[in-house]
């Protein structure tokens, strides 16, 4: 890839004797918005800290914009990081927080002023210059932290769980805000999240990680529709995942004949993909909840609980009712073992 902007090569990261990330390889293009997605402890934050220079790799290399920065100090890398806690300086007002890095560069006062004001305008904080961080709301603090990093014109902007400390309404607002800022500035962004909806909504490409390794890498559409492993499928909302044995699926509870012979080791269905009300299989409804356009059922079957969504037009089944269902080939996602 000729347009690689950030390149991690065999990057190995350790905490004491524990290997957090073994030999990671990843290329990021310029101007891309990348999500490092995974459960806590998967190595996503560790990887991000290594890119920032806050953690020295045990081996491997990091190249940014064609330059080997593996041994470069964090303050020389030209990388911005928006911390999960925002890490604003409580003793400085909003203006001085944003101007902090510019002052260190000993820029002329006029330039510091104009760039700081512009940065604050970019995140919609004009007029808040004199406030102390403690006098600002969570959303405003987040924007301030973003502005503080952006005014440095970083080569790469890293964001650690950028939306996790915000309430649901603000989270949606900040999502669009982050996308807008990224389009406006064109900065390469890498953000860490454990929330797949956030990653799907925001990222150009998603790096799904587990136990320090890349489980799958692709566009949101690819990950959503074509997860390759059981782990990826589960993360993307395939709640029914079963092993294949011949022409049936099975798990610890038992097995069900499919009526066709799949050529993969594992099959997965979203609740949407399970057909309810007709089909060869029978089960007893153990839970039912109304979800607007559909009803969500949990059906106790030979495979144990199966999660299925039924169209609202279908007659409602009560808990305890017997319900027939099907695991159609058309909606099955084949996975590798």
């Amino acid at each position: 890839m000729s347009d690689t902007f950030v390149q991690l090569t065999d990057l190995t990261l350790t905490y004491g004797k524990n290997i957090a990330v073994p030999a990671l390889n990843l290329s990021i293009r310029e101007g891309e918005l990348i999500a490092l997605l995974g459960p806590s402890g998967c190595g996503k934050t560790t990887t991000m800290r290594a890119i920032a220079g806050l953690l020295a790799p045990a081996s491997g290399s990091i190249h940014i914009d064609g330059r080997d920065v593996t041994r470069l100090a964090a303050n020389k890398r030209g990388i911005g990081l928006v911390f999960q806690s925002y890490a604003l300086f409580p003793h400085l007002n909003a203006f001085e927080n944003v101007a902090f890095g510019l002052r260190l560069q000993k820029l002329p006062e006029a330039e510091i002023k104009s760039r700081t004001e512009q940065g604050m305008a970019t995140v919609g904080l004009s007029g808040f210059e004199g406030r102390k961080p403690a006098e600002m709301s969570g959303g405003q603090q987040q924007r301030l932290a973003l502005a503080r990093s952006l005014v440095m014109r970083p080569k790469v902007l890293l964001l650690d769980e950028p939306l996790s400390n915000l309430d649901a309404r603000l989270r949606l607002e900040m999502r669009t805000e982050l996308q807008r800022v990224q389009k406006e500035t064109g900065v390469t962004m890498v953000f860490v999240t454990h929330d797949q909806a956030e990653a799907l909504a925001l990222a150009d490409r998603i790096v799904l990680m587990q136990q320090g390794k890349i489980e799958q890498l692709g566009t949101p559409a690819q990950l959503y529709a074509q997860p390759e492993t059981a782990f990826a499928a589960e993360f993307m909302g395939f709640e029914n995942i079963f092993k294949v044995a011949g022409d049936s699926v099975q798990n610890d509870h038992g097995s069900l004949p499919l009526g066709y012979r799949p050529d993969s080791a594992i099959l997965a269905w979203r609740p949407d993909g399970v057909r309810v009300g007709q089909g060869p299989h029978q089960g007893r409804v153990t839970a039912c909840s109304f979800a607007g356009g559909h009803r969500e059922y949990v059906i106790d079957s030979a495979l144990g609980p199966v999660k299925a969504n039924a169209d609202i037009a279908l007659p409602e089944a009560q808990i305890g009712d017997s319900l027939s269902f099907d695991l159609p080939q058309a909606t099955a996602r084949p996975l590798r073992a």
Binding site: G53, A74, N75, F83, A87, L88, F100, S149, M152
Partner: peptide, 21 residues
């Protein structure tokens, strides 16, 4: 919080500057 110093370093401070500033 310790990440405040990390933020300062990423904004260009040396370790010593992060402490004094």
């Amino acid at each position: 919080r310790a990440d405040m110093e990390e933020a300062a370093v990423l904004l260009g401070c040396s370790r010593m500057q992060a402490f004094t500033k």
